[in-house]
Write a protein that binds this DNA or RNA. Structure first.
Length: 491
RNA sequence: CGGGGUGUGGCUCAGCUUGGUAGAGCGCUGUGUUCGGAACGCAGAGGUCGGAGGUUCAAAUCCUCUCACCCCGACCA
């Protein structure tokens, strides 16, 4: 009888989320530092894989990595009025260093537009210096009032891109390009389908002219903002005096962009694919692809089985797979199955005396339908060309996770035209879905809807990512609307 | 910042009302039997009860102060 270690989703979704993180050893609350977490090796390995993939994409689009100080003079933050207003409440500030009170306090960076703006102004003189395409992998600190592991912690890891361009049109292209890079990463690597769109003024980044977003639906129907890309216009250019001389010899302010994704993506991963048995990882991000569980009773069996297990592991490693042989003594095979399933290992191989005779192994995918007897479906695979067979199954698994996540989202997407229907969808505490509805375009209406239902406008969708554009009337006020926007409760 | 809660072996907690030898389960160490979906026996190790002060012959327990963390609301990747 299986011990109920992970709280089922339908019983307590948020406890389930915590349990997954704990059991998979992804992270734990730091405890000694408010709102911070420790990302454990298994969680960090996933982050490193996301990083590696995304970093290659950023370089392929012409960006270069750099590193700026994690402390920012307070006066820098105050140079852009909306920016400081947005971030001031959540700043951690250093007022003393080296045993002395500082002349001017430093903020621990909540984001780096200001300090990078400062250096851009030093580095940019001519239109020939543009575009300037910089990325930084960094930690940032935002003293949030309420934290949740990976989704919102006081300190988190991210990448922040910062670019400067000669024209607004060019900057806008960059904003769109980078949002698509994020979309591609989420689709191809995380296997998380997203909707691209534009944020309303209420949800816009502090200091931006326009904020674009990718929004994913979690299994409970709530939205998670997975990445953003901002058109900063000339706001920071003016605040930090970032000017260049154009080909005609005139001085102009640069047009800037910034964009980022964070360790929140790991939260998105968990809440997109995992089940009541534990973490589920897409093969492209799994730190361990294959776990091999040897099965034996007697000593002579053990020797033969271990020999075969290690030999197979070696062969699979040569095929480029990461393989773990679970040779722990005194632990029954069943316990080992659960161990690796909770950690999200995509495929498990069992090898025992029976398999030695047939020169095969039993393979079990992390997610599989039950067989005729209601037991987990397993498949016998020959030793010959095992790496090939596993590779195929991992590819199929990667695709399946995306398809399943998309299907779940589509099942919870709905267009509504009456306020009663709308309110009904968000009635209960945990009720949420992706609701496409008309909106009159005003902040007042958006806020009124939020106050009534806790649902907010996640984005005004890209044409290709939302329902076909058709005019209508606002769900709340009856005023005219050009297109439907995406409403949901969010994390 | 408002409201609530919790601090006791590594983890989850009991003990506190009614002061009197610091406990359980899990985990850990050793050992033997087990081993194809979460095994069991035996023997062990491990705790200044968040901190400071007070009351008392005696404080995990009562009182005062304090610190930290967690949860619920308003902000955010």
């Amino acid at each position: 009888m299986a011990a109920q270690i992970i709280t089922p989703r339908d019983q307590d979704y948020s406890q389930w989320y915590q349990d997954i993180i704990t059991r998979a050893e992804l992270a734990e609350a730091a405890g000694v530092v408010r709102g911070c977490m420790v990302i454990r090796p298994h969680g960090f390995a996933i982050w490193e894989k996301i990083q590696a993939d995304l970093d290659a994409r950023l370089k392929a689009t012409g960006h270069k990595n750099a590193s700026f100080p994690s402390l920012i003079p307070m006066s820098f933050l105050q140079k852009e009025a909306e920016h400081v207003e947005g971030f001031a409440p959540e700043l951690a500030v250093v007022t003393e260093a080296g045993g002395k009170k500082l002349e001017e306090p430093y903020a621990i960076r909540p984001t780096s537009e200001t300090i990078i703006g400062h250096f851009f102004s030093k580095w940019i003189d001519s239109h020939r210096d543009l575009p300037l395409l910089i990325n930084q992998w960094a930690n940032v600190m935002r003293w949030e009032m309420r934290t949740r592991m990976f989704l919102r912690t006081s300190e988190f890891l991210w990448q922040e891109g910062h670019t400067a361009h000669a024209t607004h049109a060019e900057a806008k292209e960059e904003v769109a390009r980078m949002l698509d890079v994020y979309r591609d990463t989420l689709h191809d690597v995380l296997a998380v389908p997203v909707i691209r769109g534009i944020k309303t003024a209420n949800e816009r980044f502090a200091g931006a002219v326009e904020t674009r977003t990718i929004e994913a639906m979690m299994q409970d129907g709530k939205a998670l903002q997975c990445g953003t890309s901002h058109d900063l216009g000339q706001n920071f250019g003016k605040a930090f005096d970032v000017q260049f001389q154009n080909a005609e010899g005139q001085r102009e302010y640069v047009w800037q962009t910034s964009w980022g994704v964070s360790t929140r993506l790991i939260g998105a991963l968990i809440m997109s694919h995992s089940d009541d048995d534990g973490l589920v990882l897409p093969p492209k991000l799994a730190p361990i692809h294959v776990a091999i569980v040897p099965i034996y009773r007697k000593d002579h069996e053990r020797a033969a089985v271990m020999e075969a297990a290690n030999r197979i592991a070696g062969e699979l490693r040569e095929d480029g797979l990461t393989v773990e042989v679970d040779d722990r003594e005194g632990m029954k095979p069943g316990a080992k199955y659960y161990h690796w399933e909770q950690r999200g290992v995509p495929i498990r191989l069992e090898i025992g005396p029976r398999d030695l005779e047939g020169e095969c192994v039993m393979a079990k995918m992390r997610i599989s339908e039950p067989d005729e007897r209601g037991r987990p479906m397993k498949e016998s695979l020959p030793w010959k060309d095992l790496g090939l067979a596993i590779g195929k199954r991992l590819d199929a698994f990667q695709t399946k996770l995306y398809d399943d996540a998309l299907a779940r989202r589509v099942a919870k997407e709905v267009s509504v035209d009456s306020w009663d229907d709308f309110a009904d969808l968000f009635k209960g505490e945990g009720d949420s879905s992706f609701v496409w509805a008309h909106w009159d375009g005003t902040s007042e209406t958006e806020l009124a809807i939020k106050a009534a239902t806790k649902a907010t406008i996640r984005c005004i969708p890209y044409e290709e990512d939302g329902p076909a554009a058709e005019p209508g009337v606002c769900i709340k006020t009856g005023q005219p609307s050009a297109q439907r926007v995406l409403f949901s409760k969010n994390y």
